[in-house]
């Protein structure tokens, strides 16, 4: 109960702050997208500070519950990043991810969570600039949408 109240109160309060900052959670696969993010860093490509990364071995590791849970706890947007199809370090973990995320996108739509709040992107280890662009685009979209309200905000 206490946790719940904290989350909800936090959502309300954040909305009131003039300079509201979105929280964008990213699940990035170790071999491509996480390495792509590192390349963006090593190349000093600045991007929106809204993003927080959880490293997973493969985008196929991402359980849809991990995405729903993030929204439930007040995250404003979720990004899942994997290797391009055909390039998966584990051959086809990203296919498993693709299938599952198709369902996630559908269900988030049913639940009324705006489309821009969730993205699945294939970002290779050499695509630091694409990582930068995706983060900036998503963060800008989240600022436009404001805090994620699931009917209760």
């Amino acid at each position: 109960m206490a946790q719940q109240l904290t989350a909800e109160t936090a959502t309300e309060e954040r909305a009131e702050v003039a300079e509201w900052r979105p929280t964008l959670l990213a699940y990035l696969c170790n071999w491509c997208s996480y390495a792509g993010a590192n390349l963006a860093g090593a190349s000093r490509m600045p991007y929106d500070a809204a993003i927080r990364v959880i490293r997973v071995p493969c985008s196929g590791r991402v359980d849809p519950l991990m995405i729903y849970k993030a929204f439930e706890r007040g995250v404003d947007g979720v990004l899942v990043g994997g290797c391009h199809l055909g390039d998966c370090h584990y051959s086809e973990g990203n296919y498993a991810c693709q299938g599952r995320m198709t369902l996630v996108k559908a269900l988030l739509k049913a639940a009324g969570i705006e489309e821009g709040r969730f993205r699945l992107e294939w970002i290779s280890a050499s695509e630091g600039s694409i990582f930068q662009a995706v983060v900036n685009e998503m963060a800008a979209k989240l600022r436009e949408l404001g805090p994620a309200r699931m009917g209760d905000g």
Partner: peptide, 23 residues
């Protein structure tokens, strides 16, 4: 579950992040 990347460990990271999101 996957050792070193358990559901519990990943969910805990989400929780930890959300606890700290500043007002």
């Amino acid at each position: 579950t996957l050792r070193a990347f358990t559901d519990n460990q990943i969910e805990a990271q989400v929780e930890a992040l959300c606890e700290l999101v500043p007002a």
